[in-house]
Nucleic acid binder design. Structure first.
Length: 428
RNA sequence: GGAAGGGUGGCUGAGCGGUUGAAAGCACCAGUCUUGAAAACUGGCAAGGGUUUACGCCCUUCGUGGGUUCAAAUCCCACCUCUUCCGCCA
């Protein structure tokens, strides 16, 4: 949520900035609502104030034994007028809130302008895509060996159990998947200073509002209980970030660096034809997430730092990747700036997103009322939130399979994962 | 699932129809004392919003939403949530 004061005081500038992400702000509607709001609020506060003083004087009169009847007569019609004014104000405010909650975050000035994802800009590259002297297979082909009770990657059985876009993993493949999780959590907690957290995989709608998934993107979510407003998490970002909702942190608690492994659930509505083959786009996938809550002055540096934390994982796994900055058309609703990290997939001969690291400024914090107390002023200030995948487990598994494949279809285990695989050298 | 008791400011915790936005304590900030620190003492200290050039003035907020009343932290109803006990069960 943008600062309502900013919208009020300089709506033209806000509208201008939003144009960069092709968002048309309805300035006329907003301005007229704002005028109405002002009038309504002054009106209802005046009435409220009148009633308060009169009620107080009744109390005093009663205490001193005076006759309160004339005073009661004075207040007679006030209540109804007040109710009317209040409900009008509430209506106006509701309309404004609905608009304001639907406005995306302002982009950081360093975000390049673009029309679509093709305009994202590569900013660095690490590692060389390996050349193979045999015909490479993609992960689906590599995972095919075996049968219904031991196939490495079994999409058919998963669709029997549930439907499309799920997977069953068996044996060493399931273990490798788990090894990746352990490895990433260990790196982030031991080397990058994050604290591991375990969180619910189902959250309420307030949490989803806090991080910005609701009200605008409900169709992307799996709802498990409409009445209770409970949804499966689309990312650990939601429960982890909302830990600080309605809290005022002490300066000594910053930066708050949390990491969490969770499954993620996405309906993938609107991506019907996309990535239907294999594990790239699933309704359920695991992810290790990094989240940092920091003071405003640290936000941008934190984004750089956190992005490197994600890159370190790929470096340790010796997987070639590149980092791109998302252009204005591709940055998500709540983010002010986003780096995507794309890993090289020999099976696709392409770099594919494996992590997305974003700085949200105070956009999420304002929705969540997540603050910290600045000792210099003694006043609470909104936190800034930064988060990123470190990394998506399923896609990392795909990358390991495809990059470490051998001609005979076996898979070498990356050195850093061997300790997690009981010293195993390769999957075969 | 049944029973009982709670949810109040950054935290602990009083208040249970009317100068209570809310006692007290802790924490925090400033000062006195001290070579310095601690202790002690003195003072300050909620958040959000409106309005004003400004001092200020005003409104809202005691889990959430309704209701009663001129007036609600305080009474009534519903819901959420926490604790304890019983039952059931990973």
């Amino acid at each position: 949520m943008l600062n309502p004061k900013l919208i009020r005081s300089d709506i033209k500038a806000v509208a201008e900035q939003l144009k960069k992400r092709s968002f048309e702000l309805d300035v006329t509607t907003l301005e007229s609502l704002e005028n109405k709001r002002k009038a309504c609020q002054v009106e209802s506060e005046n009435l409220q104030s009148q009633r308060n003083t009169k009620s107080k004087s009744i109390g005093k009169a009663k205490a001193s034994g005076a006759d309160i009847k004339p005073l009661l007569d004075e207040v007679a019609g006030l209540g109804e007028k007040l109710d009317a004014a209040k409900s009008e104000l509430a209506q106006v405010q509701q309309q404004m809130d609905a608009i304001i909650m639907g406005i995306p975050n302002l982009l950081h000035e360093s975000v390049p302008f673009g029309k679509d994802e093709g305009d994202n800009v590569e900013i660095r590259r690490w590692g060389e895509p390996k050349t193979f002297d045999f015909e490479v297979k993609d992960h689906v082909a590599l995972g095919e060996k075996g049968n219904v009770v031991n196939r490495w990657l079994d999409f058919e059985t998963a669709s029997k159990l549930t439907g499309s876009r799920y997977v069953v993993m068996h044996g060493q493949m399931a273990k490798l998947h788990r090894a990746l999780i352990q490895f990433m959590l260990d790196v982030h907690t031991n080397e990058h200073g994050y604290t591991e957290v375990y969180v619910p995989y189902i959250v309420n709608s307030e949490s989803l509002r806090g991080t910005g998934q609701l009200p605008k993107f409900e169709e992307d979510l799996f709802c498990v209980d409409k009445e209770a407003g409970h949804y499966l998490i689309p990312t650990a970002e939601v429960p982890v970030t909302n830990i600080v909702r309605d809290e005022i942190l002490d300066a000594s608690q910053l930066p708050l660096k949390l990491t969490s492994h969770t499954p993620c659930f996405r309906s993938e509505a609107g991506s019907y034809g996309k990535d239907t083959r294999g594990m790239i786009r699933q309704h359920q996938f695991d992810k290790v997430e990094m989240v940092q809550m920091v003071s405003a002055d640290k936000a941008w540096a934190t984004l750089e730092e956190l992005t490197l934390h994600a890159e370190v994982i790929l470096q340790k796994l010796e997987l070639p990747y590149r980092t791109v900055i998302l252009c204005s058309a591709d940055v998500g609703f709540s983010a002010a700036k986003t780096y995507d990290i794309e890993v090289w997939l020999p099976g696709q001969q392409a770099y594919r997103e494996i992590s997305s690291c974003s700085c949200f400024g105070d956009f999420q914090a304002r929705r969540m009322q997540a603050r910290w107390r600045n000792p210099e002023t003694g006043k609470p200030e909104l936190l800034n939130t930064v988060n990123g995948s470190g990394l998506a487990i399923g896609r990392t598994l795909v990358a390991v399979l495809e990059n470490y494949q051998q001609e005979d279809g076996s898979i070498l285990i990356p050195d850093v994962l061997k300790p997690y695989m009981g010293g195993l050298e390769k999957l075969s």
